[in-house]
Simulated scan of single mutants.
Amino acid sequence: MTDIRRSLLRRDALSAAKEVLYHLDIHFSNQLQNTAAPVVDNGSVELVEEFVFNMPKHRSMQGKKMTSLQELQLLEITCSYFQEQGKDSLRQIIFSALFSPQSNVADDRRMAMLGKLVSMAVAVCRVPVLECAASWLQRSPASHCTRLAKVLVDDYCSWAPGPAHALRDIVTISPRFCSQFITAVTTLYDLSSDDLIPSSDLLKMVVTWVHDNPHLTLLTFLSAPIPSSHPPGALDSTPLLGLIRWCVKSPLAYKRHRKPLLAPSLGATLALGPAEEDRVGGSLYSMLHLSVLQILVSLRADLAEQHLYGARGGAVTRARGQARRRPGLPGGRAEPRRRCCGNRALLEQAGAGPAGCHGSGGVAVLQRGPEVPLLQTAIQ
Rank of each mutant, 00 (worst) to 15 (best):
G273N: 06
R168T: 09
H215F: 11
E335C: 04
A121H: 01
L114V: 03
I4V: 11
L235H: 12
L266T: 11
I244K: 02
P141K: 05
F181G: 02
V185G: 00
L218I: 04
C132F: 03
L266Q: 12
S143D: 15
Q92I: 06
E46A: 11
N104Q: 01
G273H: 02
F51R: 03
L152I: 10
G233Y: 14
D302R: 02
D195R: 14
R325W: 13
W136M: 02
D41N: 08
A121G: 00
L8G: 00
Q31N: 05
E348H: 10
P128R: 02
K18W: 05
E335G: 04
L374G: 06
D201Y: 06
L308Q: 03
L196R: 11
K249I: 09
V210G: 05
A234G: 10
L240P: 02
V122Q: 03
T2C: 11
R326L: 14
L117W: 07
G242I: 05
A36S: 15
M205F: 00
H165W: 14
L290Y: 04
A133P: 04
E50Y: 01
P354L: 14
L114P: 01
G342W: 04
M205V: 00
V185C: 05
K87V: 13
Q349A: 08
C157D: 05
G353T: 12
P232E: 15
P101I: 02
D194V: 07
S96G: 12
A319T: 12
F177Y: 10
R147F: 05
P330E: 06
P227R: 06
F181L: 13
V105F: 10
V153C: 04
G162W: 01
M120W: 13
L202T: 04
S96H: 12
M66W: 15
A355V: 14
R11M: 15
L117M: 14
M55L: 12
S192C: 10
V48H: 02
S140W: 01
Q31H: 04
G267A: 03
W159K: 13
S192T: 12
S199D: 06
L148Y: 00
T220K: 09
V363Q: 14
R5H: 06
G314F: 07
A17H: 08
L74P: 03
E19V: 01
G361I: 00
P239C: 09
E76R: 06
V210C: 07
R10D: 11
A263M: 11
Y285K: 09
M205Y: 00
S298L: 11
G356F: 08
F99D: 03
R10Y: 12
L219S: 14
H23D: 09
A224S: 12
G281P: 01
Q70S: 13
E84G: 01
A36R: 13
L75G: 04
R300W: 06
V39R: 05
W209S: 05
Y309I: 10
S200H: 01
R326D: 15
M1Y: 12
L32F: 09
K64R: 14
R279V: 13
N54L: 15
S291N: 11
G332F: 14
E46G: 07
L47V: 08
R318P: 13
S80V: 12
V124L: 04
A112N: 08
N213W: 02
V365M: 10
V363M: 14
V45D: 06
D190W: 04
